[in-house]
């Protein structure tokens, strides 16, 4: 049993990180009804921005969150107001291709500036572990989990308690009624995307501290985000957290039983099974 405890604990901790990665994708789908295929690239853009600040200012990667998050908020706000808002209500394909276009641009911009070398956000944390009997808990994983949880709970409070958060929920409930009370829904959407990008930035810094990354790593995290929201249902914060746990757990248990090469495979298998049984996700509405 003790050897199973290790992957389960790691799965739980990693699940918190996965949930933050997926948070923005889920939020934007729930509010704007757009599947942002560039979400993974926004996460990686966050990683590279952090890398730039680390190199330039010599900061610890963790502190760069304070700089990267507001910058990414602006990036998201601009992307929505300049690009996505103009193709809403024209069917599913235009926003999809728009996201593809943004994705290509972000990836190749990063390639141009940072080359195709593998990168990592180095910090002292990456080597530290806490030992509980025979179980080792990576301090970095623990930190990911805690920060992830904080972001998720913070976002939940934001949606519940602030005027903007309420307005965003109102617009996602009934966009016509929101217009009728005087809300400018385009600007609400822009704020929502800004917030989604902000969560992507936090995810990006954490991802960069935990794994190596390349300019083309974005789609990999997009798929993880998809996995999480498929399991949890698009547009639900609670579902996102549960989805993160299940996906990460499936991956790490898979790696435990079949070897590390099968880690991703097991995650996808669980996804397909969930999709085949509940085509709209576990918490999704039919």
């Amino acid at each position: 049993m003790i050897d199973l405890a290790q992957p389960i604990i790691n799965g739980l901790l990693l699940g918190g990180l996965y949930a933050v990665i997926a948070l923005g994708l889920s939020t934007i789908f729930g509010i704007v009804r757009v599947v942002n295929l560039a979400h993974g690239d926004m996460v990686i853009l966050g990683s590279y921005l952090s890398l730039a600040f680390c190199m330039w200012l010599g900061l610890n990667p963790l502190w760069t969150i304070l700089l990267v998050a507001p910058i990414m908020f602006c990036v998201g706000f601009l992307i929505q107001s300049v690009l996505f808002n103009r193709v809403l209500g024209k069917g599913m394909e235009p926003p999809l291709l728009m996201a593809f276009g943004i994705s290509i641009i972000v990836q190749n911009f990063l390639l141009l500036v940072f080359t195709s070398d593998a990168r990592a956000l180095k910090s002292d944390l990456s080597m530290m572990t806490i030992s509980l009997g025979e179980i080792n808990i990576s301090l970095l994983y623990l930190l990911n989990f805690l920060i992830g949880l904080a972001v998720i709970l913070g976002l939940r409070q934001f949606f519940r308690k602030t005027f903007l958060g309420r307005a965003i929920r109102a617009a996602s409930d009934d966009v016509v009624a929101a217009k009728l009370v005087g809300a400018n829904t385009s600007s609400i959407y822009a704020y929502a995307m800004g917030i989604a990008a902000l969560t992507a930035a936090v995810a990006g810094v954490l991802v960069g501290m935990t794994f190596i990354f390349y300019p083309h790593t974005g789609p990999q995290y997009l798929i993880i985000a998809f996995g999480v929201v498929i399991i949890g249902g698009l547009g639900s914060i609670k579902g996102t957290l549960v989805g993160g746990f299940i996906l990460a757990m499936a991956q790490l248990l898979g790696a435990h039983f079949f070897g590390p090469g099968y880690q991703l495979l097991c995650g996808y298998m669980v996804l397909l099974i969930v999709l085949a049984i509940r085509p709209n996700g576990i918490f999704g509405k039919a």
Binding site: R166, R169, A170, A177, G182, A183
Partner: peptide
């Protein structure tokens, strides 16, 4: 101000939150 057909209240918001949303403009 329009009271729309079918009422269209924000179902997942509380009554209080619905009213707060009604006062959306800065003056209100």
């Amino acid at each position: 101000s329009l009271v729309p057909e079918g009422r269209r209240v924000f179902g997942r918001l509380t009554v209080y939150e619905n009213l707060i949303m009604g006062a959306y403009t800065p003056r209100a």
